Simulated assay, not measured.
Amino acid sequence: MDCHVLQESLLSSASGYSNYRGILNWCVVMLVLCNARLFLENLIKYGILVDPIQVVSLFLKDPYNWPASCLIIETTGTFLYLVNLTTLLFFPSATVLTLTSITPVGGAFALCVYTVLFMKLYSYKDVNMWCREIRHTKARTLTPVHAHVSYPGNLTHRDIYYFVFAPTLCYELNFPRSPRIRKSFLLRRLFEMLFFIQLQIGLVQQWMVPTIQNSMKPFQDMDFSRMIERMLKLAVPNHLIWLIFFYWFFHSSMNFVAELMRFGDREFYQDWWNSETVTYFWSNWNIPVHKWCLRHFYKPLMGRGVNKWVAQTAIFLVSAFFHEYLVSVPLKMFRLWAFMGMMSQIPLAWFVGRFLRGNYGNAAVWISLIIGQPIAVLMYVHDFYVLHYVSQS
């Protein structure tokens, strides 16, 4: 019996407990109490400092405090921007080419709208990029000191929608604004718009359509004498309609929109009729497009060290592409001769500028306008007629 008690006492003194749950709980309680004391001491000393709004406002106020995030956003934004511009050009053209119900006139109008929007968004991106670069180098604004808006205060829906409808292709942070809308001026321009559009339609139906219809057989028979006679007969009404269209669009319509939006810059054209060189004509008959090409294409190329002649040739290439895009897609055909016809302006400009001066140069410009356009019209109409009617019969 004594041996049994002795054995139990030896076992109890040598017992190896492996469950220290109580000690672990004690440690947890002590840590909680210590940290609770520190938390309470911090709260009493500093108060509540947690403010999630402050972090968000700091990012919105100056996003360059977060360069890594800006890098991701800019890369993604550039990709989405390129996708958007590409879609603006190719989705409408694919729709016009696919749907047989779209007429050439309707297709050309739709593509013109999307092309203008493409150029506007390109300018919007460029100007804001320049502003951001200047801001990044500690300059606060791209505009003069007296400007009402500076970057990034211009990045609003109201601002971009005003630019979309404004009669210009070049974006500015602060457009010149007229003090009020002149109702009498607005009504005169509206009357001109309604009158001249009806006059153009009447001249096309009464004068041009019969001449074009009578020109199809000489073109099919390749009767060159009759082709030249038809071309010369078409030259007068075609040129008259072009002049009316120029006044209707660049003077009446654009001044109407400018007055309605109190848009102050009304330089839509200059005295292109006095052009003594082809280059002067292309620079002054369509000022909005000329300013866009100069600011967003020509000067950037020159800034990269590109030769002046190469830069001018590149502009003619882009111009030829868009002219062919706006005509060939609605007619659902592409003609290399039309593209090369636009590019022929380069040697023509060189020849007139090199060998002709004064009134001779001006006469050469007028001849190129009066003769060149009916040639293009007849060839386009002939190819459209052969492609869509003769080949299907």
Rank of each mutant, 00 (worst) to 15 (best):
L142Y: 04
A338E: 01
P144L: 06
E41R: 10
D383T: 09
S184I: 10
T76M: 02
K120M: 04
S15F: 15
N154W: 03
F109M: 08
L356A: 10
L33H: 01
P347I: 03
W309I: 03
N35W: 04
F175E: 09
M1C: 02
P210A: 01
V329D: 00
Y162A: 09
R37H: 05
R266S: 10
F118E: 02
A68V: 08
F185S: 08
M193L: 06
S150T: 06
R295E: 07
M208N: 11
T279C: 11
Q392V: 12
T86N: 06
D271S: 09
F219Q: 08
A139F: 12
G106T: 02
Q345Y: 14
F256C: 14
F268Q: 02
Y171I: 08
S184M: 07
S252R: 03
G303P: 08
L58G: 15
F175W: 02
M379V: 14
T95Q: 00
S393W: 14
I241G: 10
G107W: 00
Y360D: 12
M193S: 04
G341V: 07
K308L: 04
V149A: 03
I23H: 05
Y81S: 12
L40W: 05
F118G: 11
Y46F: 14
L82G: 07
H251K: 04
V32E: 05
E324S: 01
D221V: 09
H296K: 03
K183Q: 13
R158D: 06
P330C: 00
F322V: 08
